[in-house]
Computed example of a mutant assay.
Amino acid sequence: MKKLPSFKGRAAPVIEIAAAPVTEPVSAPVTNGAGERAEPVGSGKYTGLLTLLIRERSALLEMVGPEEEFAQAKAVAVQRGCTIDESLRERLADVRGQREAAWSAQRVLRAKQADQMSKAGTEVHAAIEERLRLGEVVRGLKTRISNFDAARRAFIGKLVDAGMSLEEASSVEPKPSADDLAGWCAQLDDALARDAELAARLRIGATAFLSEAA
Rank of each mutant, 00 (worst) to 15 (best):
L4R: 15
E36H: 12
E136S: 13
G42I: 11
E90Q: 14
L202S: 05
G135Y: 02
A111D: 08
D195M: 12
G183M: 08
R203K: 10
L141F: 04
R99I: 10
S27P: 10
F70R: 06
T122F: 12
A28G: 09
P13F: 09
K119R: 12
E100K: 15
E167A: 07
P66D: 03
D161P: 02
F148W: 09
D94M: 02
R110K: 12
I84M: 08
L109G: 03
V30A: 05
K142H: 00
S146G: 04
R133T: 13
G157K: 09
T51S: 01
V137Y: 01
A38D: 13
G135K: 00
E36Y: 11
T143R: 00
V26E: 14
Q72I: 09
A178R: 13
V14P: 03
T122N: 10
Q79I: 04
T31F: 11
R110F: 03
G135C: 03
M63E: 07
E197D: 10
L192M: 05
F7R: 07
I84N: 01
W103C: 09
R91E: 09
A77R: 11
T47P: 00
M117H: 06
S118H: 03
T47M: 06
R10L: 08
I204E: 15
R37A: 15
L166S: 11
E123I: 06
E168R: 15
L4F: 14
I128A: 10
W103R: 05
A77C: 12
D85F: 15
S87C: 07
V64D: 08
G65A: 09
A28I: 05
Q98D: 11
I84L: 08
G35F: 02
G157Q: 11
G205R: 10
N32H: 09
A77K: 09
T207V: 12
M117D: 15
R152A: 02
G183W: 03
P66Y: 05
V30P: 15
K3P: 09
E69L: 07
N147P: 00
E130D: 04
I15D: 01
E167W: 04
S43A: 05
L109V: 09
L52F: 13
K119P: 00
D161F: 08
G140V: 08
A12R: 00
D85G: 12
E130F: 10
R89G: 04
P21C: 10
E123A: 10
D195N: 14
A20K: 11
S171L: 14
E39S: 09
E167V: 13
E123R: 10
S165V: 14
L198Y: 05
V95P: 12
R91T: 05
S211N: 09
L134T: 07
V124M: 00
E168I: 01
E62T: 07
E129P: 14
D85S: 11
Q72N: 12
A213G: 02
R139V: 07
E212G: 00
G157P: 06
A213W: 00
S118M: 04
V14H: 04
S171M: 12
L61C: 06
S87R: 14
I204T: 15
P29R: 03
A151M: 01
A169K: 04
D161V: 03
R203P: 00
A182P: 01
A34E: 13
A162Y: 13
D94A: 14
E90Y: 08
A208E: 02
A120L: 00
L4W: 13
